Computed example of a mutant assay.
Amino acid sequence: MIARIAKILLTACAGLLGLVTGLGNIFDYGTNFEVLRHVVSMDTTHADAALMSRAILSDTLQRLFYAGIIATELAYGALCLYGALRLFGARKGDAARFEAAKQWAIGGLALGFALYFFGFMIIGGEWFQMWRSIDWNFQQPAFRFIGSLGLILLFVAQPEPPRG
């Protein structure tokens, strides 16, 4: 039972992380938009001309990217919280019932993991060469999210032993 409670609690924490991050990006829009703007415009990467063709200078496209990030943060947060509620409801049931309740939690955790791995490490870090920027390299903060969500995802996805 303790492992089930831990899975519920950690899934809820991941959900709160997504919602707090997404809402923070709405209420303090300018702070992280500035990061995104510098990353996608590649204005501090000192990359050669061939790589600079990847830069996105359109304010509209930059804002659409940012809106996509915010929407994904809110979505994974909501999925995780809903998943935690489903897990809580199934906590006293048999292994099959608890396993079935995991699907929303796993979906939310996987979406959050994908956001930071794909969006920040692959797209931001490699495609837009964020790693070259001294001031706007946010791969380390993204990696903290990847590590946290990934570990929780692995833990929650572990099969439930039969009760007995």
Score class of each variant (00 low, 15 high):
F143K: 11
M42T: 06
I26Q: 05
G150Q: 06
L57M: 12
L153S: 06
G24L: 12
N137M: 05
F88S: 13
K92H: 12
R97D: 10
M130A: 13
A84D: 09
T60D: 09
L87H: 03
M121K: 04
M130H: 11
R144I: 03
D94Y: 04
D48K: 07
P162C: 00
S148N: 11
R132G: 11
L154M: 15
A78E: 00
Y29M: 01
T44S: 15
G125A: 10
A96T: 07
L64H: 12
L9N: 01
P162F: 04
I26T: 06
L87E: 02
R63Y: 03
P161M: 07
Y76S: 01
A100P: 01
R4Q: 00
Y116E: 04
V40P: 02
A114T: 15
I2D: 03
D48I: 08
D28A: 10
S41F: 11
A142Q: 08
A105R: 11
A96D: 09
N137V: 10
F98C: 00
L36V: 15
V20W: 13
A78C: 09
A71R: 03
G30K: 15
F118T: 05
G89A: 10
R37N: 15
L23N: 02
P159D: 09
F27S: 01
T44F: 13
N137Y: 09
I5H: 05
S53V: 14
L149N: 07
A84N: 04
E160H: 04
A157P: 02
Y82C: 04
A142S: 11
F33D: 00
D48T: 06
N25L: 02
A101S: 05
A142E: 02
L149Y: 07
R4E: 00
F155H: 02
S41N: 12
A95R: 13
A84L: 11
A71T: 08
L87Q: 03
A14C: 15
I2E: 12
H46K: 14
D94V: 01
I2L: 06
S58K: 08
L74H: 11
A114E: 04
G22W: 07
T60G: 01
A67Y: 13
G68A: 02
W127C: 06
N137W: 10
K102S: 01
T11H: 02
F88W: 15
G150D: 07
G124R: 06
L79I: 11
G68K: 05
F27Y: 10
W127P: 03
I134G: 01
A14W: 10
R4W: 10
K92I: 00
I122H: 02
I134Q: 11
G150E: 11
I26G: 06
F117C: 03
T72E: 05
L10A: 07
H46E: 14
L64C: 06
A110Y: 09
A55F: 12
T11S: 06
Q103C: 02
A14L: 09
F88A: 15
L149R: 10
A14R: 09
P159T: 08
G22L: 00
P162H: 13
R37H: 15
N32T: 02
A67D: 05
K92G: 02
L153M: 12
R86A: 11
L16M: 09
M42P: 03
A47D: 07
L10R: 06
Y29P: 00
V40H: 08
P141T: 09
G77Q: 04
L151N: 12
V40W: 05
